[in-house]
Amino acid sequence: MPQLTALDAQFLNIETATNVANIAGLAILDGALDRADLQALLGRRLPYVPALRRRLAPVPFGLDHPYWAEEDDLDLDYHVREIGLPRPGDDRQLAEQVSRLHARRLDRSRPLWEIYLVHNLSGGRTGLYTKIHHAAVDGIGGADVLAALLDTTPEPPTGREDPPPGMGEAPPGRDEPPPGQAEMVARGLARLAAN
C-alpha cells in the first residue's frame, strides 16, 4: 500500500487545465507496429512494472497524500491507442500531434499512463509516444519502465514467460491494498495534528 510522497503528490497538485505533469517519450520505429502485438507484449511485461499497474486511491476530504492501489482489471484497450497522421506524415505534423497528446491530462481514475501508436509517418515509419504521470515515475523510474517494456535487441525473447532484460526471473508480488476509508481519515488527521 505505497503512499505518494510529498513530492509525488505535488506533481498532482500543480496540474491545471493548462499545466500538466507528464513525462513522455517518443520513439520512431522503422516499419509498422501492430496494436494487438503491442498489447500482447505489454500484457506479458506489465507484471514486471508496478508503476503501470497502479491507480490513485485518494484520501477522503484530501486530508493526506493519496495512496497507490493495484488495478485488478487493467484495460489495455484504453491505455494503448492508435492514430494516423494525414499524408505526408512529416516530422512537423508528428510534433504537432505529440504536442496535442501531451497537453491532455491523464484520467486519475485509471493508472496514469497512455501509449499511442502513430501511423502514416513518412518513410514507412511508426511513432510510439508514451506518456506517464510524473507522480507515478521520476526520470530514472521512467527509464526503468521503458527498459522493461522495450527489447534491447532486434530479436526479442522467444518464450511467452521470458522476463524483460534485467528484470529478474519472477515479477514482483502484488502490493498490499491501501487502508480503508476510515483508516485513511484517521491517518490523515494524525498527520495533520503532527504537522
Score class of each variant (00 low, 15 high):
Gln3Val: 04
Ala17Leu: 02
Arg105Ile: 00
Asp30Pro: 10
Glu169Tyr: 04
Gly43Phe: 08
Ser109His: 10
Ala95Tyr: 06
Glu169Asn: 13
Pro66Ser: 08
Tyr129Lys: 06
Gly127Trp: 05
Ala21Val: 02
Ala190Phe: 06
Leu63Glu: 11
Thr153Pro: 05
Leu12His: 01
Pro172Leu: 11
Tyr129Gly: 05
Ala9Thr: 07
Pro171Cys: 00
Ala69Met: 06
Tyr67Ile: 05
Ala17Ser: 11
Pro2Lys: 09
Ile115Phe: 03
Ala21Asp: 04
His102Asn: 15
Leu85Ala: 10
Asp107Asn: 14
Arg160Cys: 06
His119Asn: 03
Ala170Asp: 13
Thr5Phe: 02
Arg87Pro: 01
Gly62Ile: 01
Leu121Gln: 03
Ile115Asp: 03
Ala6Thr: 10
Ala186Arg: 11
Leu7Asn: 14
Ala57Asp: 12
Val137His: 02
Gly84Asp: 10
Ile140Thr: 07
Ala9Ile: 06
Arg187Ala: 07
Met184Asp: 01
Leu26Trp: 05
Asp64Ser: 00
Ser122Asn: 15
Asp90His: 02
Asp151Glu: 12
Lys131Ala: 00
Ile23Val: 11
Glu161Cys: 07
Leu128Gln: 06
Pro50Val: 02
Tyr116Phe: 15
Pro172Val: 05
Val59Ser: 05
His102Val: 12
Ala193His: 12
Arg100Glu: 14
Ala182Phe: 04
Tyr67Gly: 09
Asp107Ile: 09
Asp37Ser: 15
Pro58Phe: 10
Leu121Met: 03
Arg87Met: 09
Arg191Lys: 08
His119Cys: 04
Gly43Lys: 12
Gln10Ser: 14
Ala95Pro: 05
Val118Arg: 09
Leu94Cys: 12
Arg53His: 03
Tyr116Gln: 12
Leu12Met: 13
Ala147Phe: 01
Gly173Met: 04
Ala186Gln: 15
Glu183Ile: 01
